[in-house]
Nucleic acid binder design. Structure first.
Lengths: 204, 204
DNA sequence: TGTCAACTGTACTCGCAGTACAGTAGGGAA
DNA sequence: TTCCCTACTGTACTGCGAGTACAGTTGACA
């Protein structure tokens, strides 16, 4: 039983690293089983097909990501009880985290899946959708809390503003991948942070 | 000679539509030759392999995109000679254009390529990189022109701000694809437009 | 009339996903 | 102690799509 759990997550570990490095389609099962030191039969014992692997990877990734955001913004809130300043601190922490990640943030997984969606079944696509919707809800809530204290200088759609966090991260990661640089995503986050400062900071 | 050009661009047309719809890897050569009404041999006569097809698609796409941006912002500038207001008009036009595109903006091509880059050779990746770099230069120039007239309220890195246009578009398209909605990218552009208003508009 | 570009058509190889089992090692329940 | 079940291993197969090789065809133009 324990061996099962170990093997399964070992497969997921190897697969995740490979997929983040070179994409889902470019990662062969052959390579995964070699990395996880398991037989091909063993792989298919755990995962019906590559789709099932994708679903499991996404599920695990979304869970990790949620915990990460929970921690990060809770820590920021501890440092400053004001919702705007907590958000600004949180974004700074997020930018730093993105910069430190050598292989790029796992956020890639979402974009990678979105751009290869015909390769996946409806379950995988729905998971992807729910993840983005849950981030929208998370950030929208935080922005509403800020707006209750600081009147926005310009009218903004709160759902869209919530999406903008995901969008800026995903977009930054696309740039980073295409440019083969490593600071673009964190720079984009910092620009978004400046946006929030301008949008919510009281006039003087 | 004329037949050659026709067939080649017919292949590119069919391939581009298929790739935008379902991704590069999910598009088979079989399917392209059926759509373009050509034989498999004929396909390989024009393109050495799928890599050559990708390179040709990217080259053509980048050219189209450049002309499109040239036209769009030239038109905006005609409507208002002030660089800030011209930019705001241009972004509005861009947002409208994105909303009207039924299958999503071809910007996808860049992100799609970025996320499957191990499938491609160095030439394709370099093309992708140059495209983003040229957009950085274009928008950076426009922002510097604005900054010469309107002092930015907050200090910003002009390269990063230039990249933010591409990033917001690409990120918006990722959201749009994953959420299976159709207005996300244009909403994100409009939010970015508000950012510029706040950043450059004179204090009062 | 001959040449060449632009194809068609067929027949292969190869890598990878997925199927189908048959067999085995080891831990727990009876 | 035996049985059974989970978690595998190993082998052998099918099928698909990319890419190769090449022989033959067609139509424009010199």
């Amino acid at each position: 039983m324990n061996a099962k759990v170990d093997t399964r997550s070992r497969i997921l570990d190897v697969a995740e690293a490979a997929v983040l490095d070179k994409g889902f389609e470019a990662t062969s099962i052959e390579e995964i089983v070699a990395g996880a030191e398991i037989s091909r039969g063993g792989f298919f014992y755990h995962f019906k097909d590559k789709n099932a692997l994708a679903r499991a990877m996404l599920e695990r990734y979304i869970e990790t990501e949620d915990v990460l955001y929970d921690d990060l913004f809770a820590r920021a809130r501890e440092l400053n009880d004001d919702p705007l300043h907590a958000m600004l601190i949180g974004l700074k922490l997020l930018a730093e985290m993105l910069e430190e990640m050598p292989k790029g943030h796992p956020g890639c997984v979402i974009a990678a899946t979105a751009y290869q969606d015909r390769l996946f079944d409806a379950g995988v696509r729905e998971l992807n959708r729910q993840a983005i919707l849950s981030w929208r809800k998370r950030f929208r809530g935080m922005f509403e809390e800020i707006a209750a204290v600081y009147e926005p200088r310009e009218p903004v759609n709160m759902d869209a503003l919530g999406d903008m966090v995901s969008g800026v991260v995903e977009g930054g990661l696309v740039l980073q991948r295409a440019l083969r640089e490593h600071k673009n995503a964190s720079e984009q986050i910092m620009l978004f942070r400046t946006y929030l400062k301008l949008l919510f900071a009281p006039q003087h």
